[in-house]
Amino acid sequence: MADMYAVRNIRLCTKDCLCLYVCPTGATDTENSVIDVGKCTGCGVCADSCPSGAISMVPKTLPAQQKHSEQVIKAMDVLLRSKVEQERISAGLEGKLAAAIERSNRIMAEDLIREAGYMLPQSANAHDFLRGLLDRETDDDFPRDAVERLLALLEENDRP
């Protein structure tokens, strides 16, 4: 199988159709504009041919992400907790400003946790988190099936 696969960005696509002409397997020609990964050989000719730069070649296996030091993670965690608390408070307040602050804090918190080691869903720590949920969450309405499905779908890319 190929190491890379082609992805079309529909926002950039201007229907020049060079990708349809050059694809050896017909992977780029689909009714929903999503390139067929099953047929794509990763040859990259479509990406090179597209005059709008709408196709990217993406690797199938991602490298291990950069590690963050313990100290950095701890310092980021302090800020993460503060932003989460601010989200919680603003969620209880009325009005457009409160709604904007709630959203803004959620976005900042996501960015902070991302740079505290949780950038990729494929990482070992994300998998450990998911497995931990299966052990700990005992409520009937906890979506166990979602966790099980994620563990089945997401390969691990950096387990030592």
Partner: peptide, 21 residues
Amino acid sequence: TDMQELSPLEMSVLCSNLARG
């Protein structure tokens, strides 16, 4: 601070961040 002991809202943040990923 133990990264493992996340409150429900912190776990929500982790999940919405991984959703973005």
